[in-house]
Design a protein around this nucleic acid. Structure first.
Lengths: 199, 199
DNA sequence: GTGAACATGTAACAAGTTACATGATTGA
DNA sequence: TCAATCATGTAACTTGTTACATGTTCAC
């Protein structure tokens, strides 16, 4: 097996898999940010509908990326506000991101405890399911409003595209849920009743 | 703090969190199954759009559930086929499932490397993004066809409900992607071009 | 006879969560 | 003064993944 010369090895930085590190790299590619900001972008912001990361994952990821020279960090000391560490992607980080993006994306991961609970709605207490559906609809309305707002501000085409995608999906969920909730609400408690009757 | 008497402790089995164990319990509640079948249901079947579990998670989970008496197992020896272990939920398992379902569902987890890649489409090689979009559309068409088929067979209302939900979401994704793909395809490579020009 | 589907399992490892620990500033 | 928001970080723990290991039967 041939060993790459040093100058080539330098051009091929460690390939980051599609994990929190790659996620940070991708967000930093769009602009410098602190760990706190990255978390907010993935939690409530225009990335929240397709990524997921907690502080406990983001901060160590940023430290590791800095150690690998894929990002650089400047300490910002602002009077009247807590200090913060603002990270920027480096040319090496850019290369690593390109390498990660060149791989075919894996299947989406979706885990919905909510749908799982609805599938087993027969086992639920009467008020529980309706309550949860109400909460979910309210939450979807919030998310839809946020997305619409973000869409008005954004001008980069890919940013608009992914927001539009999220909006389309959220609207479909909301519409279906509002129109068909009676299907699950009609059977709530049946499973319990059957068991109680059998006793 | 009061300690529950033994007969009450027996009625309150270990509360399974919303993880692979609870997932197995929920599926077994709908009918006995082997580990292999559970995996197929969550991979391609009518659960695939809201749960996620691999063999390496399912088999240990079933063993643990059996040790806790939340499921029972019967070994099936069928001539002309590999043996298999068919699990059934026990009354104790039923209680544990109820306890797990009584908790409020957490937020859905969604991770889409695909959307992440589209958000950064400017960095992609020209053919790459269009290829991936084509593949995704084809996959969505498969999933839509499967859901439609499942919907025709199913008669339990909650089963129909969750399939219908998946269908609504998949159709929204397909529609949006087909109509708006030009937004990302228009900018593919811009990021690279800019960088190359700067060199 | 070869690849796909059926079928179960283990172990080393990777990854991320949760809870903890800390502290500043702003606005009610 | 109290809650919320800004801000960073650690460590023990839980969880699940990946790859390995094995063997059968069916259809082409």
């Amino acid at each position: 097996m041939a060993v790459a010369p040093d100058h080539l090895a330098a051009r091929a930085p460690e390939i980051a898999r599609m994990n929190v590190k790659t996620l940070c790299l991708g967000i930093l590619q769009l602009g410098s940010a602190s760990g706190y900001e990255i978390r907010k972008l993935t939690q409530d912001g225009p990335f929240s509908h397709f990524v997921d990361a907690s502080y406990g994952a983001i901060y160590p990821a940023l430290s590791a990326l800095e150690a690998e020279r894929l990002v650089s960090c400047r300490e910002e000391r602002r009077p009247g506000r807590p200090d913060r560490r603002v990270y920027s992607i480096t040319p090496l980080g850019h290369e690593a991101l390109l390498a990660a993006l060149a791989e075919s994306p894996r299947q989406d991961v979706i885990k919905s405890e909510f749908l799982f609970a609805l599938r087993l709605a027969e086992l639920a207490a009467p008020a529980h399911i309706s309550n949860e559906i109400d909460r979910r609809l309210a939450r979807l309305e919030d998310q839809i409003a946020q997305m619409e707002e973000a869409l008005e501000r954004k001008c980069e085409p890919t940013g608009r595209f992914v927001c539009g995608y999220g909006l389309a999906v959220y609207r479909a969920m909301h519409g279906y849920l509002a129109e068909n909730r009676h299907m699950v609400e009609a059977v709530v408690g049946n499973g319990l009743a059957a068991r109680d009757a059998a006793e």
